[in-house]
């Protein structure tokens, strides 16, 4: 069995307006030492998925079904207390905006010490030494001095490094980074991604990187999962997604990738329209109102939910277009366009 395995995970929120199906039948596997990138637009259910794996929806109003297997243990059915004990130790998380994700009233050191001491029965002094070590490892200069600083005294990049130090303090085997670089400058983004790659190698953890920007996961990920409206629409190796993508939504994401050689605002083929409502999900293929190739499926896209099917060697696609049509469109219509720009 894989180290992490999600089977048909569903996380629904009953609200006054209706049932929000934030995650609707998500499955994937991930091994130790490997990196999975989860990509999708805002509201596609990426954060809800990651919080769900950590068990942070438990006890709330969310309706959760399916299975989450972590190192041979099932977590959806496990008790809150049991999952709490795994949190921070076996699985840890890095959040998007480190300024708001760290407590403004405690020093960076105290917050790392706290994380460490929940799961390790050590004295404050030992924990402090460990915190300083961790700050050093994530590349914070003068860690023995910075350990006593407050989050607001750090720069954005340094704060994110401190956040990473906190998440790694108990040597977790699964690390989830939810948009770890979105709040940072472009140059700092690259540094943080480099750091995460190095650390992952050192710690041999399973890493999930969540982002709405394919560019972020391009170099880091072994596998990539493209999410749309709470569902996986395409899943494959990094090569599958970048060299042989088959889903129209993935094509759209590739087309709207910011490039270093262009103005950030100028994008080749932005996806028209906006992400779907998760309460009234469009009938059939959830992407059909925005899909350029919708009419080529002869009305099926509106009526019938496409299944996530294997196209070749573990590469999964959720689209009614026949495999050959998709490949032809990619080779003849999409790829030349992307390369021309």
């Amino acid at each position: 069995m894989s180290f992490l395995e999600l089977k048909d995970l569903r996380i629904h929120f009953p609200t006054d307006d209706g049932l929000v199906k934030s995650v609707d039948g998500l499955s994937f596997t991930l091994e130790r030492g490997k990196t999975l990138g989860i990509v999708g637009e805002s509201g596609s259910g990426k954060s809800v998925t990651s919080l769900g794996i950590l068990g942070l929806h438990k006890g709330g109003r969310a309706r959760i079904s399916g299975e989450i297997w972590l190192d041979g243990e099932e977590l959806v059915g496990a008790s809150q207390e049991h999952v709490r004990a795994l949190r921070g130790k076996k699985m840890a998380m890095i959040f998007q905006d480190p300024l708001s994700a760290m407590h403004p009233f405690y020093t960076v050191g105290d917050q790392i010490i706290e994380a460490y001491r929940i799961h390790n029965d050590v004295s404050k002094k030992v924990a402090r030494k460990h915190a300083i070590d961790m700050l050093g490892r994530v590349g914070i200069p003068q860690p023995e001095r910075r350990v006593d600083s407050y989050p607001h005294e750090f720069s954005g990049g340094m704060r994110q490094r401190a956040m990473i130090a906190m998440a790694l303090s108990c040597d977790p085997e699964l690390l989830i980074a939810d948009e770890p670089t979105t709040a940072l400058d472009v140059t700092v983004q690259a540094q943080i991604l480099d750091l995460m790659r190095d650390l992952q190698r050192d710690f041999n953890a399973a890493l999930i990187i969540i982002t709405h920007d394919l560019g972020v996961v391009a170099e880091l990920s072994d596998d990539i999962l493209v999410m749309y409206g709470g569902k996986c629409v395409e899943y494959g190796t990094s090569d599958d997604i970048f060299e042989r993508p088959e889903h129209p939504y993935t094509w759209g994401l590739l087309g709207s990738m910011p490039r270093l050689d262009r103005e950030p605002t100028e994008r080749l083929m932005p996806i028209k329209g906006s992400p779907p409502s998760l309460i009234n999900v469009p009938s059939g293929c959830a992407f059909h109102p925005r899909c350029v190739f919708e009419e080529r499926t002869g009305g099926r896209a509106k009526a019938e939910v496409p299944e996530l099917l294997e196209t070749e060697g573990g590469h999964l696609v959720r689209c009614h277009l026949p495999r050959e049509r998709r490949r032809a469109i990619w080779e003849n219509e999409i790829k030349p366009n992307l390369e021309a720009s």
């Binding site: 921070g88 959040f95 994380a115």
Partner: peptide, 21 residues
């Protein structure tokens, strides 16, 4: 606040999340 989510993600028990954070 986000920092409450962080506190829970660290594995703090709910009482400490509420009082300390």
């Amino acid at each position: 606040e986000d920092y409450i989510r962080t506190a829970r993600a660290k594995g703090l028990n709910e009482r400490r999340v509420v009082v300390k954070h």
